[in-house]
Simulated scan of single mutants.
Amino acid sequence: MAGRAAPTARRTRLGTELRKMREHAGMTTTQAASLLGTSSGQLSNIEVARFGVSADRIRVMARIYSCTDPALTEALAEMTGDRKRGWWEEYREILPPRLLDLAEIEHYGTHLHAAHSMHVPGLLQTVDYAREIFRQAVPEMSPPEIEHRISFRVKRQTVLYRDDAVPYRAVIHEAALRMKFGGPNVTRAQLRHLVEMCDRPRVTIRVIPFDAGSYPGSGQSVYFVSGSVPALDTAQLDQSHGPVFIDSEAQLAQYRMLLERLEATALSPTESQNLIQDLGQSL
């Protein structure tokens, strides 16, 4: 087994799910290691992603742990197969590791779902709009850091443009559309971009209008990345110190429900596109 000094988000999640599987079986690391023919130290290192693990070993572990979800077992086995360096690795010494984790998680996601109330979601931002967002960060970013962040964000957006584009749904409050980040010209260009994105086949944008009044989870920004099976979903929240990832089953269920209720509150995609267009023309 090869040691990993800096495990990626994908490897870390794999180890976490294997630990959950073992704990669900009611086994200690010592008990499980004995059945697997390894040491408790090696098993612990697998679970914290310091050591790699093969697909065949994962299937053996699932059998020993009496896992009754074959789809989850195969999804975990598939996570061992792709060992290529992702494009985000070129930013490893430049940007915070959690940002690289976010790019990796959404790269392998099967569906992306965002909800924002104060600004346009990152994957839908224009360069000028993103630059203004980063300029307002606290603590203040240096000009080179801002440009690195913009470059990174633009590369993240390729998940919406590649041949196997990931389906993307966004719920945006009207307040975010009226915020003039960078002034009228930048805002107008951003709204025009949103109108164009509405026409992309795998992109769905819905707006919660002011007329909707109160709505579930007001003020929250949520980014939900679906995995190949529901157990591998991830919710990401923005915090002042960086992205926070959530993978507990109970919390994931809450965020799924929240996003469903937000979509039910929002206008239809066509009505939303019309509203965005009207707001842009009014500037």
Rank of each mutant, 00 (worst) to 15 (best):
L194E: 04
S218F: 04
P7G: 07
D199C: 08
G219C: 01
Y161N: 15
R13I: 02
P230T: 09
R85P: 10
R98Y: 11
A6V: 15
G41D: 12
S117Y: 05
R4Q: 05
T270D: 13
N274E: 11
R202N: 14
A71T: 10
S39I: 09
Q190V: 05
Q254G: 11
D278G: 15
R10K: 14
L232I: 09
S142T: 15
I246N: 07
S151N: 14
R19W: 02
W88I: 07
F134P: 01
R59E: 07
A231D: 10
M179I: 11
G3A: 09
T8A: 06
P70A: 10
E93D: 14
I105K: 13
E47P: 02
A33P: 00
R135H: 08
E140N: 10
V138P: 04
F224G: 15
H148F: 01
A170G: 11
A114R: 10
A212N: 01
V195W: 03
M61N: 12
R59Q: 12
A176K: 01
H111Y: 08
R169T: 04
R19L: 09
M197S: 10
E106R: 15
A32I: 03
H241F: 10
G280A: 01
I58F: 03
A71P: 08
H113R: 11
E74H: 02
P230M: 14
A55H: 04
G86Y: 01
G37S: 03
Y255G: 02
S240F: 04
R202Q: 08
I133H: 06
Q190A: 03
L95A: 08
